[in-house]
Amino acid sequence: MNPVNYLYLSALLFTIGATGVLIRRNAIVVFMCIELMLNACNLAFVTFSRMHGNLDGQIIAFFTMVVAAAEVVVGLAIIVSLFRSRHSASVDDASLMKL
């Protein structure tokens, strides 16, 4: 199959993720969408690795996974503590950090 199709899929996934981040209020869903974007990137990296015939992309993909894992840990912890204090997981409620 033409590897370019994987890139199309990756772009599609990324767009879905980005739209989700922008329009959803629930922090968990926003979070999932970010994961979706990261994985879209991973797919693109792996595809490029295949297309160029070297392993650079695959290595980057591993890095991304590690970062994503770390992010999940930190991010979920923040969301949980936010939920505990405010009884809401809406990102719009946490808007105090402004000038």
């Binding site: 981040v21 329009i23 990102v91 719009d92 946490a94 808007s95 105090l96 950090m97």
Partner: peptide
């Protein structure tokens, strides 16, 4: 412009 809404920051980032 700094309204504190994470999503509007995200829009400007995108």
């Amino acid at each position: 412009l700094q309204n504190g809404f994470a999503r509007s920051y995200a829009v400007s980032m995108f």
